[in-house]
């Protein structure tokens, strides 16, 4: 079957089998290999993408489900080659080591940022608890998300 959706701001039409997973189609058919498969059953979060702005596990979604929807992957977080706040904060805080889990954390972090709420560390830890990382021990990820999210909210408050 043929599906049409929007991926990282671009309209995309792709031929898929009904049982193909969104993760596989993004990776294999569209070459967006940023998202990773760490478990393929919804626990690790490495495959997280945004669908209409909400985080979803692409390993648990069929490609056919996203017809007509907007998908954002890690490749779509930077705008015009400029890293978003979460990406920059990840670099500054050494929030990644091997980087395999990182796309999932960045997508989740970007979602939190887009919510525009101030979050304390405990809330951030809770919000990140659907993503596993085996390298960092999380602290520097929390540092990065804290800085990105709260900087953003602080700016928003100033503007109001």
């Amino acid at each position: 079957m043929e599906i049409t959706c929007e991926v990282n701001g671009q309209p995309v039409t792709v031929e898929v089998e009904p049982h193909w997973l969104l993760a596989d189609v993004l990776r294999n058919q569209l070459g967006l290999t940023g998202l990773h498969l760490g478990c393929e059953y919804g626990v690790c979060g490495a495959c997280t993408v945004l669908m209409d702005g909400e985080p979803v596990r692409s390993c648990l979604s069929f490609a056919s489900q996203v017809a007509g929807h907007q998908i954002t992957t890690v490749e779509g977080l930077a705008v015009d080659g400029k890293l978003n706040r979460v990406q920059t904060a990840f670099i500054n805080h050494h929030a990644l080591q091997c980087g395999f889990c990182t796309p999932g954390f960045l997508v989740t972090g970007t979602y939190l940022l887009q919510q525009g709420k101030l979050l304390n560390r405990e809330e951030i830890r809770e919000a990140l608890s659907g993503n596993l990382c085996r390298c960092t021990g999380y602290q520097q990820i929390v540092d990065a998300v804290e800085e990105a999210v709260n900087q953003q909210s602080a700016n928003a408050v100033e503007c109001e």
């Binding site: 294999n28 290999t33 940023g34 890690v74 977080l77 670099i91 990644l96 980087g99 395999f100 990182t102």
Partner: peptide
């Protein structure tokens, strides 16, 4: 120092074995 490795990895440009086909 922040890492020279990171810019690729935070933009999804990393190439892990599973990404190579």
């Amino acid at each position: 120092m922040t890492r020279v490795e990171d810019e690729r990895l935070v933009t999804g440009q990393g190439q892990y074995v599973s990404d190579i086909t």
